[in-house]
Design a binder for these strands. Structure first.
Length: 593
RNA sequence: GCUGAUGUAGCUCAGCCGGUUAGAGCGCGAAACUCAUAAUUUCGAGGUCGGUGGUUCGAGCCCACCCAUCAGCACCA
């Protein structure tokens, strides 16, 4: 009955803080999705981790004169902090510098090799004799062959924007010390994507109607344009060694190894919980559904290359029964980009709102609400502080927050702090209609959430809140209480029960305030589970990871059964109004720094 | 440059396989109400659906070209 849902999210590069684009595009949506499925009683496993090996990390490490390890540990720790603040409930958020991940990645490499999907190829690359290492393209400078600009990078000329090969540069030199690099032959392993092309095309052509059109179209086009082998090793020191003799100076290239993290993190999670085979419920049961939440820049890696890697491993790794196959991605609900104040986010230009910064000044649910309302599900969208404050005040506070506040306040003051009973006349048509309308939300909103249409789901919940405000105005219990208190009590009972339903319907989006409402309504217990950071010790390494314990969670995706007489708690407003002047201050802060 | 996407009311966006007077939220105007964080509810005004041309009995939705914005084509994943 219960479904197995694997929720994967992009592995953030641990080379800088998270910004709102990361949250809106890749981290908040899966959390909403995961919370919903947990409320439904499904078996959710949500995993990800910090990508500790990418080029940007070594770049930053070189720039700061520290080790890559130091860089990624700093930001990994920051990620754990941010995810706890905003409430991204990973069952495991680990990183890629663990013994477990090394082992799994090497095993997949070996399996691909044994199955004949890797080949070796030698090419010439620039080598620095002074530094005794091969240089990445962007470490090489020279004169642009197109426009004559003297400081063109090896991959692109910043002056004329031409895309270049470093060997095309006139007078190439190392960016680090100005020395002249020499061409030297180097041998690398390639993943034979051409050989896998037919299988990938078959996978992408089968039952993908429910995929977002931009994702499936892009992926199909990507494959149809022709797949060529991609190098999966590099001449660097920071990364995962090859499981072969004689390749000590080479590492697995990060794009090959990072996506394996979904798989290795699932295995780590199972081991951490003392059930080392448990991960197979998501990876080997054909009916399990695996979702990958990513930004659009990552589509080829998740819809094409990761399936290719899984197919190339033979698809029955760590499993004796060779009739079983590792599940290929069920859905890749990639998001477009979130821009800010009309301009694309840019880390290098410091044009971004950093998550830790934002969460320092605003409540997590206000941020969650706005980022969901403008989630770039089908196209690029724009974050503005003006709009953030407006939607917070005119939508979240005005419609939902105010509804809760007016009815809880009225009930608390006028009905002795208790849920009033249904009057002797019972429920009338309007009462029943109101209740059935909101109860139907479990289906309509549930269907939208299951289809990863989060914005539409939130809109529908807001519509129900507005409808409830209309019901309350129609019933006007503040009038009725003067001449027919029992009827006023009935209306308040109905409204309390409606917001008890809305509490659950909103909870995947607004978990913190739903929890508070839960308490105001007089309930005990936690709707959701507990987040915590734990240190894990392997044979020679240790790492800290974010974990989640859902065992005490009592939230259920089902209609309220609120009982008359239940004692309420003194309510407080769920949300704060924000001063419109804040928008100018925030923009000034952005421009000033 | 090549490939792909997007351009719908003041703002942010929905519009499934082409079919009667193009929708929502917010904003704006009017009214009702006063329990509530001057919040709520109802009603209303607002758009030649980027431009030009075409296919069709009929196009926001199909085709061609143009304009604008964006993305991919990188040793960035």
């Amino acid at each position: 009955m219960a479904e197995n849902i694997l929720v994967c999210t992009a592995w953030p590069y641990a080379n800088g803080n998270l910004h709102i684009g990361h949250l809106a595009g890749a981290y908040l949506p899966p959390d909403i999705f995961a919370r919903f499925h947990r409320l439904k009683g499904n078996n959710v496993l949500m995993v990800s981790g910090s990508d500790s090996h990418g080029t940007p990390i070594t770049l930053r490490a070189d720039a700061e004169g520290v080790s890559p390890l130091e860089i990624f540990e700093r930001f990994h720790g920051q990620f754990l902090e941010t995810y706890q603040q905003i409430g991204i409930t990973y069952d495991l958020f680990t990183h890629t510098d663990t013994e477990n991940h090394y082992q799994v990645s090497q095993d997949i490499f070996s399996a691909c090799l044994e199955n004949g999907f890797l080949y070796k190829h030698t090419e010439e690359q620039f080598y620095s004799e002074t530094e005794q290492r091969f240089l990445p393209d962007r470490y090489i400078e020279g004169t642009c062959p197109v426009c004559g600009y003297e400081s063109a990078r090896g991959d692109q000329c910043d002056n004329c924007k031409s895309l270049l090969n470093p060997t095309e540069l006139i007078n190439p030199r190392s960016k680090n010390d100005g020395s002249v690099p020499v061409l030297r032959a180097t041998e690398h392993f390639y993943l034979d994507l051409g050989k896998l092309s037919d299988d990938i095309l078959a996978y992408l052509s089968q039952d993908k109607d429910y995929w977002r059109s931009n994702v499936i179209n892009f992926s199909l086009q990507y494959v149809k344009d022709g797949l060529r082998g991609r190098a999966i090793t590099r001449d660097i020191g920071w990364g995962i060694p090859l499981p072969l003799e004689g390749y000590d100076s080479k590492r697995l290239y990060v794009w090959f190894e990072a996506v394996i993290g979904y798989f290795s993190a699932s295995i780590e999670w199972a081991a951490n919980h003392g059930e080392p085979e448990k991960w197979k419920e998501w990876w080997y049961r054909p009916e399990a559904k695996t979702y990958y939440f990513i930004g659009k820049d990552n589509i080829p890696f998740h819809a094409v290359i990761w399936p290719a890697e899984l197919i190339a491993t033979g698809r029955h790794l760590y499993e004796d029964d060779t009739s079983k196959f590792l599940n290929l991605p069920y859905d890749v609900p990639a998001n477009e980009y979130l821009n800010m104040e009309g301009e694309k986010l840019s880390t290098s230009r410091n044009w971004a709102i950093w998550a830790p910064d934002l969460l320092e000044r605003y409540d997590p649910d206000a941020v969650r609400f706005y980022l969901t309302a403008i989630a770039p599900e089908t196209r690029d969208t724009d974050f503005t502080f003006d709009d953030f404050i407006r939607r917070n005040n005119d939508e979240l506070v005005a419609a939902w927050g105010n509804l809760v506040n007016r009815v809880l306040g009225f009930a608390y003051k006028r009905f002795d702090g208790q849920v009033p009973p249904i009057g002797p006349d019972g429920l009338d048509d309007l009462d029943r209609q109101m209740l059935s309308e909101v109860e139907a939300g479990f289906d309509t909103i549930g269907d939208l959430l299951a289809a990863v249409k989060l914005r539409a789901a939130l809109d529908e919940a807001m519509r129900l809140a507005r409808s409830t405000n209309g019901y309350l105005n129609e019933k006007a219990p503040w009038k009725a209480i003067k001449d027919d208190p029992a009827r006023a009590g009935t209306s308040i009972y109905v409204t309390l029960r409606v917001i008890d339903n809305l509490k659950i319907l909103f909870s995947p989006f607004l978990p913190h305030t739903s929890q508070r409402l839960h308490a105001y309504l007089g309930y005990e217990g936690q709707l959701f589970g507990r987040q915590y950071v734990e240190d894990f010790v392997e044979t020679n390494r240790r790492h800290s990871a974010l974990c989640y314990d859902n065992s005490q969670a009592i939230g259920r995706w089902q209609p309220s059964d609120l009982q008359p007489g239940q004692a309420l708690r003194q309510p407080e407003p769920l949300f704060k109004k924000l001063e419109p002047e804040l928008a100018e201050q925030e923009v000034a802060r952005l421009l000033g720094k």
